[in-house]
Design a protein around this nucleic acid. Structure first.
Lengths: 218, 218
DNA sequence: ATTACTACTCACCGAGTAA
DNA sequence: TTTACTCGGTGAGTAGTAA
């Protein structure tokens, strides 16, 4: 309805329309059109002046804001080349603690702080994907642009490059999914880092099901 | 609904969702979400596969087209600097026939053909605006970009520049509204030219009410 | 001609529930 | 756990009509 009004010009200017005309445009009765105008006015989405020859209608700022919001959201969806986010489900399990060893390396830590915006808790949360669907999605995810963490050397050895994606765990906790680039782990396993100790923060235990929403880069 | 599905990623990929989850996102019951998915599938706006753990949903090409259409239309409305069209109402009256004299001038005719895409019938349809509202809108219209017809000279005299706007008369007949730039006519009068003789084409007589939809330039 | 009120109806929504 | 059926109540849309 708001959209139809905008379409006939009420977005930019005051337009004079009869409720009958609007009703035809919208495929409803004149009475319904009239009532809807009254409702839009109550929401203060339009300014409305009733005259003998029709209604003078103009979208208010909040009415315009409604359409602009819808427009921006559609723009993100329609114009994006790839999904904005992807959701996984899996169960938590305990690894061998080697994740902690890598995360603690200053060569990685500095880049995490700079590129992810947080100092990771020294340890990773391991998640095993439960369905074929999730594994397929994971493979698809790998083809989308990520935050790149460069490899480095210290006195004793070389550390490989890593890809990260920002994530939201169980719709609450921020963190990042990390993929080691060289070593090819089991594709059913996700490794998560976060500023906090997630097992405490979200009271997660082994074998518990969790939801991971992964955000790709624009 | 289609929009909500797109928002969770079904625009670009197949997503797995439960009807319960969708229902919460949309603020309706699980049953309604389920039924709406079935309806969207019937419209072939989505592809739908029901599994034991939820539905695999992806927008079909026609579903995407729906959102893309809405997006493009909103884009025109939201991003336009000025109204796309303005509508007038007025009554037809007979002028002194001087309109025909000007329209017949080759200096104008050539430009009309080139810039409006039609060879005008030698005569103008005069319309008198009936309400203050229409006259205000007419004044506003003058500030929006128009098709410019240049002035010229022939052996005997000078002809001034003219502004045109494409129009639709009574939602049917194409034509153009013309404004002489120099001479300042009565601002309650509109002069229309068209490829056909409008009085015959639309069976218009003097004192009859007509609707003029004027399109501004982007 | 308008707008918009009061009644009324019917389609849509959701509770219950089966599979 | 899921999805999705039936069914009954309710609110959005419409007809009639006043102003």
């Amino acid at each position: 309805m708001l959209y139809k009004l905008a379409e006939i010009g009420a977005f930019h200017r005051t337009v004079k329309v009869s409720t009958q005309y609007l009703a035809e445009k919208m495929g409803v009765s004149q009475q319904t059109a009239s009532r809807q105008l009254i409702e839009l006015e109550k929401l203060s989405w339009i300014q409305r002046n009733v005259t003998a020859e029709g209604c003078l209608i103009r979208l208010s700022d909040s009415g315009k804001a409604q359409l602009k919001t819808l427009y921006s959201r559609l723009k993100i969806i329609v114009e994006a080349r790839h999904p904005i986010s992807m959701t996984f489900e899996g169960v938590v399990f305990s690894g061998l603690g080697e994740g902690a060893y890598y995360v603690k390396q200053d060569g990685y830590r500095k880049q995490f702080m700079e590129k992810l915006g947080f100092d990771p808790f020294p340890g990773t949360l391991n998640i095993r994907l439960t369905s074929d669907y999730d594994m397929k999605v994971r493979e698809e995810l790998e083809s989308y642009p990520a935050i790149e963490i460069e490899g480095f050397k210290n006195e004793s050895r070389t550390f490989g490059a890593v890809k990260c994606y920002p994530i939201l765990l169980n719709n609450k906790a921020k963190g990042a999914l990390i993929f080691a680039l060289r070593t090819h782990y089991d594709s059913a396993v996700l490794e998560i880092i976060a500023p906090q100790f997630l097992r405490n923060q979200l009271r997660i235990r082994d074998k518990q099901k969790v939801k991971i929403e992964v955000f790709t880069m624009p």
